[in-house]
């Protein structure tokens, strides 16, 4: 079964050991998805697998067969411009070196969907109640799987708030 990457079908890997991350970076030359730790501890490799954010370093490429993978390269849409959140990252300076950035952006886009669904988080006061109130703490907890070492955290959270406000209109 092929894997759909940003809408294009790619053949499955010839070596079962190849991670989705290495397939993207080394075989498809889609290097926007970053390798930070290769052990599931930093979030830099976050991609959307059938719409859910996952770590591509701990996903075997073979596990993505038949699935739809969306990477940072596939976010902007057909118009080739920037995604709302990408623009907000620039405006809010939610980046410095830029290495964790694609993972932060992919992660935040999926997070917005999780919030829309009403999924709770560990800082949600009452998980049995309805959809959580979106606070900075909620955003921060939900984004904690994406490390940033340059310290762009404030800008990232502000950019996400901008996106949430824009899409809520």
């Amino acid at each position: 079964m092929p894997i759909r990457v940003n809408g294009a079908e790619v053949p499955p890997p010839d070596d079962a050991r190849i991670s989705l991350l290495d397939l993207l970076r080394e075989h498809l030359h889609l290097t926007g998805t970053k390798k930070g730790c290769d052990q599931g501890a930093c979030g830099a490799c976050t991609v959307l697998l059938d719409g859910n954010r996952v770590l591509s370093c701990l996903t075997l490429a073979a596990q993505a067969e038949g699935s739809d993978v969306r990477t940072i390269e596939g976010l902007a849409g057909d118009r080739g411009g920037l995604h709302l959140l990408q623009q907000a990252f620039i405006e809010r300076d939610g980046l410095q070196c830029g290495y964790c950035t694609p993972g932060q952006i992919c992660s935040a886009i999926a997070m917005a969907e999780e919030l829309r669904r009403g999924d709770p988080s560990y800082v949600t006061l009452d998980v049995a109640a309805g959809p959580p109130v979106v606070t900075r703490a909620e955003i921060r907890e939900r984004m904690s799987g994406n490390l940033c070492r340059c310290g762009a955290h404030n800008g990232i959270v502000e950019a996400i708030e901008d996106m949430l406000a824009e899409t809520a209109r």
Binding site: R25, H29, T31, G32, T33, K34, K35, T71, I72, E73, A76, L82, Q86, Q87, F89, I90, E91, D93, L95, G98, Y99, T101, P102, I105
Partner: peptide
């Protein structure tokens, strides 16, 4: 001033050392 390399970084096209084909 927003950083000049911002658009390349947020799109993931800024090329890092391990990404040179």
């Amino acid at each position: 001033q927003s950083r000049v390399d911002g658009p390349d970084k947020v799109r993931g096209v800024a090329r890092f050392a391990a990404e040179v084909p």
